[in-house]
Computed example of a mutant assay.
Amino acid sequence: MPFVNEYISPEDAARYHLAEIDASCRSGGISRQWTIDREQDIYLRILSRGLEAETKHEGVWSFHWKGTLVTVRLDLLDGKGKPGQPGWSHWLLVRLNGTSGLPPALGPYKRSVIESLKQALLAYKDAGVLSGNTDYTVTLDIGRECVL
């Protein structure tokens, strides 16, 4: 089953301990939706976005990859697409787990983790459950300072 965008059920919130994740986040606008692949046990969920004009394209996300939670800083560099039309977005992976990179247990799966992140962003499109785009493409670059 591929990634899908959906609102988070109370049962899923409890299963993935989202209240604990939310409590550790300083943002008050944590998303109640996610992009999830249930078969692979992978989800992507926005935790916070920049509030100022110069930071509004910066975001911190929780990325649960097969039992391991990773905090991801993604910056939206550009994107286009109106509802009912194809769209695209260009993302920059700035940081994983702050500046420490992937947990050691995920080291051997680095390529798979990054590919899963790209596939989740592709399904997320421009707004998750609120996305109105039809076809979509994603470019995901890895920042020079990003430790994998």
Rank of each mutant, 00 (worst) to 15 (best):
Glu39Gln: 15
Glu6Met: 05
Leu96Glu: 05
Ser48His: 07
Gln85Arg: 01
Tyr43Leu: 06
Leu121Thr: 08
Ser116His: 10
Lys56Asp: 12
Leu102Lys: 04
Pro10Gly: 06
Gln33Asn: 13
Leu69Lys: 00
Ile36Gly: 06
Ile42Arg: 00
Thr55Tyr: 14
Glu58Ala: 09
Glu6Ile: 12
Tyr109Arg: 11
Gly87Cys: 07
Trp91Ser: 03
Val70Thr: 05
Leu93Thr: 15
Arg45Gln: 11
Leu93Ile: 14
Ala105Met: 04
Lys118His: 14
Asp126Ile: 00
Val4Ala: 03
Thr99Pro: 00
Pro10Cys: 08
Tyr124Asp: 01
Arg15Ala: 15
Leu18Ile: 12
Ile30Leu: 00
Arg45Val: 15
Pro2Gln: 12
Asp141Trp: 08
Arg32Ser: 13
Ser48Trp: 09
Lys125Phe: 11
His90Met: 08
Pro103His: 01
Asn133Cys: 04
Lys125Pro: 02
Ile36Gln: 02
Leu51Asp: 13
Ser48Asp: 09
Gly87Ala: 06
Arg111Val: 07
Asn5Met: 05
Val94Ala: 05
Val147Ser: 07
Leu96Tyr: 05
Leu93Pro: 00
Glu11Gln: 14
Pro83Ala: 07
Arg49Val: 05
Ile46Trp: 07
Arg73His: 11
Leu96Met: 06
Arg45Leu: 09
Gly128Thr: 09
Ile114Glu: 01
His64Lys: 01
Arg38Asn: 08
Gly132Asn: 07
Thr71Ala: 12
Asn133Ser: 02
Tyr43Ser: 09
Ile36His: 09
Ala127Asn: 14
Trp61Thr: 03
Val60Ala: 13
Gly81Glu: 08
Leu140Ile: 14
Leu76Val: 14
Ala127Lys: 06
Thr35Gln: 02
Leu121Glu: 03
Ser9Ala: 10
Gly29Ser: 04
Leu148Lys: 06
Thr137Asn: 11
Pro86Met: 05
Asn5Trp: 06
Arg95Gln: 05
Phe3Ile: 13
Lys82Cys: 10
Gly29Trp: 12
Val70Ile: 04
Glu20Ile: 15
Gly107His: 09
Ile30Lys: 02
Asp126Ser: 10
Glu58Thr: 00
Ala123Ile: 15
Val94Tyr: 06
Ile8Asp: 03
Gln85Asn: 11
Val4Gln: 11
Gly98Trp: 02
Glu145Thr: 15
Leu93Met: 03
Ile114Trp: 08
Ser89Glu: 13
Ile114Asn: 00
Val147Arg: 08
Asp41Cys: 10
Arg111Pro: 00
Thr71Pro: 02
Leu77Cys: 04
Arg32Thr: 14
Leu148Ser: 07
Ala123Thr: 15
Thr35Glu: 03
Gln119Cys: 06
Glu11Leu: 10
